[in-house]
């Protein structure tokens, strides 16, 4: 999970205090950052998520679950 949080923080360009961070609240949030999160999940975790699955995510933990990286 730490590794996933650090990758998400890199994309969001802000401190991510923990898995409960609501990623769309990141300063300068935009759709390109959303796209980057989806690409990271696909490249690093081999999971091709649908836009619906992504839209249902609110926190970094939700994203990690989607990626299969939450334990």
């Amino acid at each position: 999970m730490d590794d996933f949080i650090s990758k998400a923080a890199d994309i969001l360009e802000c401190d991510v205090a923990g898995a409960d961070f609501a990623f769309r609240d990141a300063p300068d949030w935009n759709s390109m950052k959303g796209f980057a999160l989806l690409v990271m999940i696909e490249q690093d975790y081999g999971k091709r998520a649908t836009i619906e699955e992504f839209m249902n995510c609110r926190t970094v933990r939700d994203l990690a679950v989607l990626a299969g990286a939450a334990e």
Binding site: D10, I11, M32, F35, A36, V39, M40, Q43
Partner: peptide
């Protein structure tokens, strides 16, 4: 193989 610049390999 779409990816934002920061993730392009």
């Amino acid at each position: 193989a779409p990816a934002p610049l920061a993730l392009a390999k």
